[in-house]
Amino acid sequence: MAELEKQFLSRKTMEMVTALLTAGAGLAICYGSWRSGIGWSEMGPEAGYFPFYVGVLIILGSLVTLLRSLFFYRHEGEVFLTMEKARSVLGFFLPLVAFMVISLLLGLYVGTALYICGAMMWQGGYRWWIAALAALAVTGLFYLVFEIGFQVPLLKGPIEGWLGIY
């Protein structure tokens, strides 16, 4: 049993963690609204009046979910994530985060090209020159559609400037 528990993240735990998370968000919303005034001024209800009650409802809803998962739980014993699934989700998610950080530093075009090239090489098992060609093609297409077709600029970094593209 101990072996199994190591591998699983149970759904019940996740359910409670999420309920606590939303309850926390509710508290933050109540606090934020309280700071901007939840009362009544000569202009009518103050800015925090409406969101304050929204926050209260979030806390109430979260508490109900929390209590239900503690005492009347229908999905008892269900698994939220197995190690195997977690690995494939993380295998997708971590490169995604890396892509975002690279894009923030070097611009979205460079980020996209590197991301697609990397994902194809490491996850898809393609040879480097196929991956690089595909990455260039997709990035080029992005440039045509966004920059030229719809004339909306994407985030650019130092490399485009150095190449003198914009």
């Binding site: 939303t22 968000a25 919303i29 934020g32 202009m43 929204v54 926050g55 809803g61």
Partner: peptide, 29 residues
Amino acid sequence: AKTLVTMMLGFAFATVGMDTISGSLRLTF
């Protein structure tokens, strides 16, 4: 309860920023 929570979170996200009536800032932390 879950529908209530997601819905109210939506309302809360919508109120972030400048309040259109009083002009003051809300929930920007």
